[in-house]
Write a protein that binds this DNA or RNA. Sequence first.
RNA 1: GGCGGCUUCGCCAAGCGGUAAGGCCGAGGUCUGCAAAACCUCUAUCGGCGGUUCAAAUCCGCCAGCCGCCUCCA
Length: 461
Amino acid sequence: MKSIKLYDSLKKTQLDYDSCGRSTINIYSCGPTVYDHSHIGHARSSITWDFIVRFLRSIGYTVVWTRNITDIDDKIINKSKDLKMHPDKVARIYSHSYHEDMINLNVDWPDYEPHATQYLSHMYSFIEKLIKKGAAYVIDSDVYFSIASFKHYGCLKGQPVEELEKGFGRVEPNPRKKHPLDFALWKGVKEENEYSFESPWGKGRPGWHLECSAMCDSLYGTNLDIHCGGDDLIFPHHENEIAQSEMASGPFARYWLHNGMIMVNGKKMAKSDGNFITIKEALKTTSGNAIRFFVLNSHYRMPLNYTEEGIQAAQNGINRLSEALSDINFNPYLITSIENDFIKEFNEVLSNDFNSPQALAILFKITDTINIEKNKNKKEELQKTLIVLSKILGFNLIDNNDISLKENTLSKLIDKLLGWRSDYKTKKEFENADKIRNLLKDSNIEIKDLPNNQIKWQIKL
RNA sequence: GGCGGCUUCGCCAAGCGGUAAGGCCGAGGUCUGCAAAACCUCUAUCGGCGGUUCAAAUCCGCCAGCCGCCUCCA
């Protein structure tokens, strides 16, 4: 098994991944709270973990990937009031929207996609365990986690409790809590008609941090290898997860990975700041491949500035990669395993904390080589290499090129038009020939005259 | 106030001690009826100032600007 290095947010240093002799890697990544359409920031996160899972699988690991859906939350409830709709329906609508986005971004389905509301009974036993161990206390129908019970509290954030307290001045202290940093595991209802669930402590709703811990515990027990999420979740979400899980069932995730934020004009893209672009909006003018390219072209831990130009540059880059595959005459879905230096180098750079920008550079190196290769067999192998590697990054360059389209009627129409254009060209009626070319161009179909009277066309966004 | 991070070509962005990847855009050329594509060629010494070193974008110190987290957040 290939060895990999990764940056661990908990130890705050780059480490060699220790597989503990197992070929399986259990990964849990924090998914969305479904109260609205997802934005580019969610896209980055999803694409990042998707590509890392793909890569780990490509080098031989068996990955069991879980990505949760938070389907109960105050924001969902607020939205349900706005829409005059049941909270559960709100959650289902936006989960569906999220799935649509994931499909368009070619993000693989995780192996498990637990919804918080499906794990209530597990949460109850989780809370009970904490209460028994003295790590949680009940006040009326609220249950709080006592951070004083966990001596490593603050380890992920990298700050002792005393320092964390200092930053707490801005928040109204909840007088019911024993310590200002204690957080709710279970929130009892304030009003009788609130959306809530029956629990051993009365009607209420689970605390956000609890969900992930309980679901991890249920799915993986103490065998969680990698836990990932956006770096805005480090504190308090992941910090609290660690505290709960360690207190309830012992060692939690062995490694922590966090992706950097998407920025807009130097500020973090966020719903609350209103400076977000939804994935659906972005897909109106660009492709899923381009968004993925845009994301993968920078290292996952770095902040990434979102701009229209950046997306357009990414789309142009994708177009060039697809271009190198536009004349394949083999079945791209039946590629037997190949080995060469490009692949070796590709695996090398990705093994070094998942350096996707360098991996992308290799794709372009292959593209350059394809474009100048005269030998048919060699060229074919390079094209196969490009397809295989681009798939590991999660690109779909094949459908982008629309091989299948060439079989259908639209394709026949295009060929017919191109035939007419050739006739006009033969008769030197270039004005008419150009009319056809412009017509196609207006429909995002670009044509190119190659030597020997061959004509190539490509759908170009 | 605390902790963490960022500053590299016009734009995006790698690099983690050995003499600046890649993408986009742009310029010139080959090809072409023209165009596009492809191909060839061209474009930075790394925020500032010091220091360590045979050698620094890379390590250390100081300064400046920017951002994130500490409240829901991918």
